[in-house]
Lab assay of single mutants.
Amino acid sequence: MFYPNSPQTSPQLTQIPYGQQYAMMQRQIQQPYHPFATTEPQARLYPYHYQGPIQQEQGGFITQQSTAASPQYVQMRVTPVDQSIMSGYPNQTANGSSSSSFNYNIHPQQQQQQQQQQQQLRHHAMPVGSVPLQDDRYRKQLIVNYLAPDVTSTDLHELFSRFGELDGARIIYDKQTNMSKGYGFVYFCHAEDAKEAVERMSGYEFHGKWLKVGYSTNPLNIVPSNSSPYVHAGSRGAAG
């Protein structure tokens, strides 16, 4: 039997160049792979992502010199942007860049009308829970959420009447099932009393439920100042 490094198959040491006398086997001759043993700084910083320098080929596509990437890492192929796409944008300079302001050559009167329309939209648009300043009635009506099913309009009136005089209180019921929808409205005579009720009743436990109280901004629920107070009856038909 002959071994790869046996004296019968191995040459004389004098015939082997210096430095390879003890590297006779194939696994010894093959050098191990060192990912950080390279002179390129990109490979030292990113050993798993770097795959060699990027070269520009004919046709405008950018390719990489090395083989496919590892399945664990996804390499994105980048193509140059066609400058003709950006030619339609206004205020574009000769080098292809555009300024931040756009001039669509709008007539001054049209621009003024658009600004007025935007101001009107901001004036009428009102986020949930906010209180408008032009109508004091919005500051007097509250919406009470997360009410228990057994709470009546009379219970709601008695709960909030300790903060001040009320114009009314009612629970909203479903017309088909005649069941409470879980929320109601309270109408105060003074805005200061309503503000105190919002601050003190939010998070209050009532009939096993934690109440959420806020201003009601729905104009359909506003009680006119010259109208008669609501009837605080315990029956659902009268309260709904």
Rank of each mutant, 00 (worst) to 15 (best):
Thr67Asp: 05
Ile143Asp: 00
Pro127Asn: 07
Ser235Phe: 02
Tyr230Asp: 02
Met126Arg: 04
Leu45Met: 06
Ser70Glu: 04
Ala23Gln: 15
Tyr48Glu: 03
Ser98Leu: 10
Glu205Lys: 05
Thr177Gly: 01
Lys195Cys: 11
Pro7Val: 11
Gly88Met: 14
Pro127Trp: 15
Asp82Val: 12
Ile29Asp: 15
Leu211Met: 05
Ile222Thr: 09
Gly237His: 10
Thr177Tyr: 13
Pro4Ser: 12
Gln119Tyr: 14
Asn95Thr: 04
Asn103Gly: 08
Ser228Lys: 08
Arg122Phe: 12
Ser66Glu: 13
Gln64Leu: 15
Glu205Arg: 02
Thr217Glu: 01
His190Ser: 09
Asn178Thr: 11
Ser227Cys: 08
Asn145Phe: 00
Gln119Leu: 11
Thr67Gln: 12
Phe36Cys: 04
Gln72Val: 14
Pro219Cys: 00
Ser153Ile: 07
Phe102Arg: 04
Ser10His: 09
Phe61Ile: 03
Gln65Arg: 09
Ser84Asp: 09
Lys212Glu: 00
Gln65Asn: 05
Ala94Gln: 10
Ser87Tyr: 10
Asn218His: 05
Ser216Pro: 00
Lys140Asn: 02
Gln116Asn: 07
Asn5Tyr: 15
Ala233Glu: 03
Val151His: 08
Gln120Ile: 14
His34Asp: 06
Phe2Gly: 01
Ala238Glu: 03
Glu205Gly: 09
Gln120Asn: 12
Val78His: 13
Val131Arg: 06
Met76Thr: 05
Thr79Met: 09
Asn221Phe: 14
Glu57Ala: 12
Pro80Arg: 12
Phe160Gln: 06
Glu40Tyr: 09
Thr152Ser: 05
Asp136Leu: 08
Val131Phe: 10
Pro71Thr: 12
Asn178Val: 05
Lys212Asn: 07
Gly60Glu: 09
His232Gly: 06
Pro132Gly: 10
Thr67Cys: 08
Asn218Asp: 00
Met179Asn: 15
Leu147Ile: 15
Leu147Tyr: 04
Gln58Pro: 08
Gln75Glu: 09
Leu121Ile: 03
Gly203His: 03
Ser235Val: 03
Ser100Glu: 02
Ser130Gly: 09
Leu166Cys: 03
His49Cys: 09
Tyr46Asn: 10
Pro219Lys: 00
Arg170His: 04
Arg139Leu: 10
Glu158Thr: 10
Gln119His: 06
Ser87Arg: 09
Cys189Lys: 09
Phe206Ser: 01
Pro71Phe: 14
Ala239Asp: 05
Leu159Ala: 06
Pro35Cys: 15
Ser98Glu: 11
Ser87Val: 14
Ala125Met: 13
Gln31His: 13
Ile62Asn: 07
Met179Gln: 12
Val144Phe: 05
Glu40Phe: 10
Tyr183His: 00
Tyr89Thr: 09
Ser235Leu: 04
Gly214Tyr: 05
Gly214Cys: 10
Gly19Thr: 10
Tyr89Gln: 05
Asn91Asp: 10
